[in-house]
Design a protein around this nucleic acid. Sequence first.
DNA 1: CAGTTTGCCTAATAGCTTTAGGCAGATGCA
DNA 2: TGCATCTGCCTAAAGCTATTAGGCAAACTG
Lengths: 195, 195
Amino acid sequence: MARVGLTAERLTLAGAELADEVGFDQVTVSALARRFDVKVASLYSHVRNSQDLKTRIALLALAELADRAAEALAGRAGKDALAALANVYRDYAREHPGRYAAAQLRLDPQTAAASAGVRHARMTRALLRGYDLTEPDQTHAVRLLGSVFHGYVSLELGGGFSHSAPDTEETWARILDALDTLLRNWPAAPTDPRG
Amino acid sequence: MARVGLTAERLTLAGAELADEVGFDQVTVSALARRFDVKVASLYSHVRNSQDLKTRIALLALAELADRAAEALAGRAGKDALAALANVYRDYAREHPGRYAAAQLRLDPQTAAASAGVRHARMTRALLRGYDLTEPDQTHAVRLLGSVFHGYVSLELGGGFSHSAPDTEETWARILDALDTLLRNWPAAPTDPRG
DNA sequence: CAGTTTGCCTAATAGCTTTAGGCAGATGCA
DNA sequence: TGCATCTGCCTAAAGCTATTAGGCAAACTG
């Protein structure tokens, strides 16, 4: 009967920690109740259901990631900014694999629109101001960067690059070099053969 | 009591279909039993457990994907091969989202080593023969391509690119152009400043 | 300090996973 | 063809998670 002081925020934070420890898909209402030494049903006063809990963790992760990105980008431009942003994602995923997995949770359009996800897109766009791209190439480049960052980080985290030399640090550095080179020499759209 | 003729193979295939219909994480021993109109316990004669079932689906997906890739690469080189391989991944993910998700399942090292996953790495490497790269740049490039393909496909599938112009077809085409350009002008390793 | 709110509880239902043990249809051999 | 064995699917049962309904007592409110 002792009141533990549960709130949606505390549950979300504890859920994020749990995710980092055991994996996002192992985050369960039951496990969280155990962690607070409280009965399972008690959580349902603070969180609508399991899906709601996971969504909150995802939103937390997206916001944390956006905060880090904003800080990293401040005062940087060009390749410096590119590497800083890329490393934010990679470092966050390594420090907080569960939260990073949570950030990939598919959100319904409304929630997604209100999430920090939009800040990410805006920051990537801001980063590209250091390169000479105009629409629609800028959007293509935003999507390319998102793909590379997310793809690399999730493959590396998933062990996709293990068991083989050279090490991933080296690869990561060379990929950032390559992206910088590419953005500085972005190929023009091929002329439409129908024209 | 009528024997339905369950086998691990039939269960795996049905599981893959189920994954494509309702999502890989919704693939459950129970759901599969329902699909065969059979009691749940019956499946345990053919499949060790839920994890085993999912692993089999993952291996099926990896093998199908490798088969498609091999076929697509046959007789092609350079950018033609690059686009063909890239489209194999993208098309497969769109046709079989559940299977594609299954292919990302983290396998234990032994299983991974025996899986078709190694064929994928080899094919990407083969593709790079059309470009002028030597080790270790080739490995870096293999990893870059893997990152872009996987990252783009999973973001697109997850709806990460929705709600915004221009359409993803155009972006995809431009990204392939960009990768081709990049591979043909792969930046040399920067000289070590300590040297 | 009485009244109300609210936080955590018990109880109950329902689904998924996994194991143990049983019966009958399929298979093999004389 | 008949008998023995094997194998496939079954019933039963225990344990975990999710979720809802309703209760009691601690904590605010005036």
